[in-house]
Design a protein around this nucleic acid. Structure first.
Lengths: 196, 196
DNA sequence: CCTACCGATCGGTAGG
DNA sequence: CCTACCGATCGGTAGG
C-alpha cells in the first residue's frame, strides 16, 4: 500500500520538522517523534530509514521549493525590479507556508552527513546564482547600481531569511506585506532620495 | 588560586564555543570538550558547574559586548549616519573577533533554560532599542526616510549577523571593508539615485 | 505496528 | 585533576 506508506512518512517528516525547529535536530529523539506520532520509536523505521533520512527529506524538499520558485521567476518575469520583487515574495511565501521546515532548512542542515552537506550547498549555490542573475538584469537595464552581486545577494537572503526568527502567522503583517516592505527597503535603503 | 581558576574556565569556554559552533550545543559532549582540554570529563566540573553554565557564559559575555558597543555609539557619536556606520562597524568587529562565540550566541541560545532565555531576550531587545534610537536620530535630522524602525532594525541586524555564515578571517575582505559595504547598501539600496 | 532488547554514550557525582 | 561509577537515554535491530 504505497499511498498509505507515503502519507505516513509525510506525517513523520512534518512532526519531526516541528520538533527539530523547536528543540534542534540533536536534542530531538526518535522517541520524541514517536510519541507525537502515537507509536513506538521502533515503528518509525517502517517508514523512514534513519533519523538523518528525516532531516535529509526536510532540507532537500525545501531546497527544491526555493529552486523551483527562482527558476520560475527567471523564466517568466521581465525586468529586474519586477523579478526581484517576485523572488522576494515567493521566497517569503515558502518560508511562511512551511515555517518549521524552513527553520530546519536554515538552521539544522549542518547535521546532515558530509556528502549530503555537499549536495545541499550546491543547491543553495544554484539558488544564489538565480538571485545574482536577477541583479544582473537590473544592472543591465541601468536601474540597479553596479553592486557586488555576490555580496548583495547575501544581503538580500539574510534579510528575507531572518523573517523566520520573528514571523508569526497570527501577527499583524501578512507575508505579502512583509515582502513589499523588504523589497522597498532593499531597493531604496534608509537615505532620503534628495536629502538636501 | 583564583587566577589560575579563571583562566582555566576561560579556556574551557573558548574550546566549548568552538565545538558548539561547529557541531551544535546538543551534539557536543562534555567528553568532547574534555578531550580538547586534555583532561577527563569529570575534571571539567572543578571549573564549571554544568554544560549549560558554559553556554550561559558564552551567550551573556557576547551580549555584553554588543550592549557596551551600542551604548558607546549612542553616547559619543553625533549624527544618525555616523552612528549607524559606527554601530555596524562595532557589531561586525565583535562578530569577527569572536567568531565561535558569536555563532553560538546567534544559533544556540535556544538551548538555555527557560529563565535564562528570558534574560537573554531582554538583553537582545535592549540592543535593538539602541539601533532603533540611531534610526530615530537620522529621521529627526531629515536624512533617513520615515521607516518602520522596528522593521528596519531587524533588517539591519539580519544583514550584519549573516556575516558569520560566510566570513573567513583569511578571506579577501576585512571586517572594516565589510562594514563599509554593508552600511552603503543599507543606506542607499539597490536603486540608482536618478534612475532615468 | 509492537515487544524486547542491544551496545554506546550521555551529563554528572562521590571520593580521594 | 583522576578513577570509578551512576541512572538515563540514545539510535537502531531482530523477530514476529
Amino acid at each position: 500500500m504505497p499511498t498509505r506508506f507515503t502519507n505516513r512518512k509525510d506525517q513523520i517528516v512534518q512532526i519531526a520538522a516541528e520538533l527539530f525547529s523547536k528543540k534542534g535536530y540533536s536534542a530531538t529523539s526518535m522517541r520524541d517523534i514517536a510519541e507525537h506520532m502515537k507509536m513506538e520509536a521502533a515503528s518509525l523505521y517502517n517508514h523512514i530509514s534513519s533519523k538523518e533520512d528525516i532531516l535529509h527529506t526536510i532540507c532537500f524538499t525545501t531546497a527544491d521549493r526555493f529552486i523551483n520558485a527562482i527558476d520560475e521567476v527567471n523564466d517568466i518575469y521581465f525586468n529586474g525590479e519586477e523579478k526581484l520583487r517576485m523572488a522576494v515574495k515567493n521566497h517569503i511565501q515558502i518560508l511562511t507556508d512551511n515555517m518549521a521546515e524552513a527553520q530546519v532548512f536554515l538552521r539544522e542542515w549542518r547535521h546532515l552527513n558530509e556528502e549530503n552537506i555537499q549536495a545541499f550547498i550546491q543547491l543553495r549555490d544554484r539558488y544564489e546564482k538565480g538571485i545574482q542573475s536577477i541583479l544582473q538584469t537590473g544592472i543591465d537595464e541601468n536601474v540597479f547600481q553596479e553592486v557586488d552581486k555576490k555580496f548583495a545577494t547575501l544581503n538580500i537572503l539574510s534579510s528575507v531569511n531572518w523573517i523566520v526568527e520573528w514571523y508569526r502567522p497570527d501577527g499583524n503583517m501578512s507575508p505579502e506585506e512583509i515582502a513589499d516592505k523588504i523589497s522597498d527597503f532593499l531597493l531604496t535603503g534608509l537615505h532620503k532620495k534628495q536629502p538636501f
